[in-house]
């Protein structure tokens, strides 16, 4: 394929996607085994209406209970808190997106399901172990003390699985947040509007990168 298929540098996601496609092609079992069991529900099929706006839960049943949703909201807002004009992640549908994602009847998303659900459980256990309180009742400082242990690039001893969970969770929160109009503005995307002319990059941008355009 060509330019509408830029390679994704999210290798983990890309790898899972390739593996999933491989499974569909009846690849050897050793590869198929690496793929988590796909959620049993109907997907949107190969000819969905592209003009309709969809909401999570409309196409397949969601998974998270009320307590889990609160945990997801608290952790999402810790990762992407409100700042100036930009609301916190949970205000932009990120909780619903993560629920929709882990509930989706597709191999790639099903592969995330187990890790996310297990991670949420261990987060609760850690809150109880350290502070004898549910995660959502912790103070910001207490939440930070847990997240600091999970957010390091190199997992601390004994924190390998929770750290991997945190990494993946952070990716999903970012995916949910930055795909909204507010998130796009926050990150600095300006576009998706019709223009009469395309002028190329502004002069100040070219100066910054030291390029002279002919």
């Amino acid at each position: 394929m060509t330019s509408n298929n830029p390679i994704q540098f999210d290798r983990r996601t890309a790898l899972k996607w390739v593996l999933a496609a491989a499974a569909a092609l009846q690849m050897p079992e050793s590869i198929a085994d690496e793929i988590a069991k796909t959620v049993a529900a109907k997907g949107y099929g190969k000819d969905p209406d592209l003009l309709k706006a969809y909401t999570p839960g409309q196409l397949w049943p969601l998974t998270l209970g009320a307590a889990q949703r609160r945990t997801v909201a608290t952790l999402s807002d810790t990762i992407l808190p409100a700042e100036g004009e930009f609301p916190a992640a949970s205000k932009l549908g990120v909780v619903e997106f993560i629920d929709e994602w882990i509930s989706a009847p597709y191999p790639q998303m099903s592969a995330d399901r187990e890790q996310i659900l297990e991670g949420l459980t261990s987060l609760e256990e850690e809150a109880q172990r350290r502070f004898k309180k549910p995660f959502t009742d912790l103070t910001a400082r207490q939440i930070a003390s847990i997240c600091d242990d999970l957010a390091s690039v190199q997992a601390k001893q004994g924190f390998e699985r929770p750290t991997a969970f945190f990494q993946r969770f952070k990716q999903l929160v970012a995916a949910g947040y930055y795909t909204t109009p507010q998130g796009m503005k926050d990150i600095g995307y300006v576009g998706n509007v019709p223009l009469a002319k395309y002028e190329g990059p502004p002069k100040e941008v070219l100066e910054r990168i030291g390029v002279k355009m002919v």
């Binding site: 996607w17 999933a20 496609a21 569909a24 997907g43 949107y44 099929g45 190969k46 969905p48 592209l50 003009l51 706006a53 969809y54 409309q58 196409l59 932009l92 549908g93 997106f97 929709e100 994602w101 989706a104 597709y106 191999p107 790639q108 998303m109 995916a175 949910g176 795909t179 909204t180 109009p181 796009m184 998706n192």
Partner: peptide, 16 residues
């Protein structure tokens, strides 16, 4: 259409 109007924020799936 922005991705937040699509299922799974428009991500690729086995269907698309």
């Amino acid at each position: 259409q922005t991705h937040d109007q699509a299922p799974l924020r428009g991500n690729s799936t086995a269907d698309k």
